[in-house]
Design a protein around this nucleic acid. Structure first.
Lengths: 350, 350
DNA sequence: TTTAGCACTCCATAAGATCGAGTGCTAATC
DNA sequence: GATTAGCACTCGATCTTATGGAGTGCTAAA
């Protein structure tokens, strides 16, 4: 991140005022407007603005327009000039009540995304919790017709995963029951990744002592565990239509790009993964996301954790010109509350 | 439906030509253009057009523009003038291959909606199969922590429904197993509605002979069955972004209305229910849907059936000015194939 | 019944004209 | 040396006007 130590106190204040004003009004900011706030003459302001422009922090869309922040300008603003608005405790309490009462993670995240998109009037995106870090809790098999077995996997966050597995031959209910008992004993409490490893090792070790049936069932269980780690829809998007209200996005081409981007699993997942590495709020401004359709937008994300391990990310997408001082704390607290709500569930005795 | 017996052969041909041309070009059609096709002079055409306008079948956006069909005009067109384009057998085969290979209804409908929206370049909407008409196949209970029971219900279409139920006290695995056995015996093969009734009757009859535990479990099962009939997301929408390509919808306000409409469960469900009554293709043109945001659109739907009972609807939403002669057979065949694919699964031996 | 002819209407597009906001630069002022 | 007033200049936004084209309705002739 480039720093601007050469930036005078006054220039910083001015940049801050300019960004805030631009975010508020959406129009390029002229020297007159800033002069009033700063108690200086427009000409002086213009001199400072020229400096800021030379540094690449602001630009002018054309000769006789005011200035607006560049990506670097926004960057400096959010990194060191921004004063975050604290949230009202009442709002936090309300959020917590709404989230805490959900009794499965899916519901919880749905609610969180709905709330966050409503509060920010922007689009909200939430990645589902990473399965590998969740603990195995219980597996059950149900015989179906045609050599198929229904595997039901319960993870420590109380989420239920179904998977139909095609098997080389039919199993009886009793066989499957025995297999389930075995796996439940072997994998109990382990996280999904090590449960899988453990299971494999156990099957290897005990190869001669186990029945052929059980060995085959073992492969099925492996499949089920593997599948539990992947997800068909690894993230939720809510409130996309909110984006239509922003004049800077109110263009069919742009909207189309955005809306299609939301369905492009890979790009979005990649983007979210980049924000997943460390806890805390991350901000990607405009082109920083490296994802074309998101160019006119900013992304404010925060990761959420269960048991002190980061398992997912949530955030909002809106125009670059968004009220960061309000959005940042909202995203932050939502991530914390989601983590807390998941934790509460996960840690409950079985 | 108003009929127009007074309409001369020539007027009908002309209306047909006009609608087709308007659908093709998107511009009001003038007398000159039609004159060429019909081998008549523009003046003659104008006379006929004046008649058609008096009948309310076409209008002119302003004095010196050509004519375009009104809703009634479209209505007459699709009801009696349209010549439907037969589908290529290869396409049908391809569709069938794509659909038939899905092994759960959810997947099947996802695929169908994706295919249909891609083929028509419009938005596709599919209601999930009505649960009441599906047969109960199997229920299983799994004890969870904190007085909660996981009910797993398998319906005859091989769809799996999970529901966590809070119970007044804890049940042991054995108790739940006994209860499940009982219900499976009582409800096997019945459709969901009568399974529920049957269960209730059975519990009433055998009240003194059954254990307290079983009675309580009975209530749980009832809950699970009830829940199985309802759905959080009773329909799928795919390809919404396709609508952004149509100039007549390329307006942010309109798009916003449309996109928000797609999230409004009640209105959409109401709309789909109206199309569910009888089999076959149904078309709602413009305001006929009675749903404001859909005014600039038409809806072409067809119901799909399992075991000769209508269980759901699918269709496409696009601009009123759509290629009905292609869309109608596509919707029709998709509905038939979806029904067939569901049937195939449902009728498989258990 | 059909058609040619003509006056008329209205939209779309381009071309000017005007206005206001804001800039950069220079010279005077603190 | 920093600040400011003044002024010429630029550029977009908006409004007005002109022009051409597409299409109509009506009438009178074929």
């Amino acid at each position: 991140m480039a720093s601007f130590p050469e930036l005078s106190e006054r220039a910083q204040h001015l940049l801050k005022a300019l960004v805030e004003r631009y975010i508020g009004e959406g129009q390029p900011v002229g020297s007159r407007a800033l002069a009033k706030d700063a108690g200086l003459s427009p000409a002086t302001i213009r001199n400072v603005m020229a400096d800021l422009e030379d540094l690449g922090l602001i630009t002018s869309p054309h000769t006789s327009a005011g200035r607006l922040p560049t990506v670097s300008g926004y960057r400096l603003f959010v990194d060191s000039l921004l004063t975050v608005k604290p949230l009202q405790q009442g709002l936090v309490d309300q959020l917590w009540l709404d989230l805490e009462s959900r009794d499965n993670p899916r519901d919880l995240l749905e609610t969180a995304s709905k709330l966050l998109s409503e509060l920010t009037h922007m689009a909200c995106i939430i990645s589902m919790p990473r399965r590998e870090t969740l603990a195995f809790q219980h597996i059950e098999f149900l015989p179906l017709s045609d050599h198929r077995v229904l595997a039901i996997l319960v993870t420590s966050d109380q989420e239920i995963h179904n998977k139909i597995i095609h098997t080389p031959h039919s199993f009886s209910a009793a066989e499957l029951q025995a297999a389930a008992n075995f796996f439940n004993a072997v994998c109990a409490g382990k996280d999904m990744a090590s449960a899988r490893e453990h299971l494999r090792a156990e099957l290897q070790n005990e190869r001669e002592r186990l029945s052929e049936q059980l060995l085959q069932a073992g492969e099925i269980a492996e499949q089920a565990l593997l599948e539990g780690g992947r997800l068909k829809k690894p993230f939720l998007v809510r409130g996309e239509t909110n984006l239509m209200d922003f004049v800077e996005l109110a263009d069919v081409e742009r909207l189309r790009g955005l809306f299609e981007a939301f369905r492009q699993k890979e790009s979005i997942v990649g983007l979210l993964d980049r924000c997943l590495e460390s806890p805390g709020v991350k901000i990607l401004i405009g082109e920083e996301s490296g994802f074309r359709p998101l160019e006119p937008c900013s992304l404010v994300t925060a990761s959420y954790s269960v048991d002190n391990r980061v398992v997912g990310v949530l955030g909002v997408i809106g125009p670059t010109r968004m009220k960061y001082e309000r959005v940042i704390p909202l995203v932050d607290i939502t991530a914390k509350l989601v983590g807390a709500a998941l934790n509460q569930r996960t840690l409950a005795p079985t």
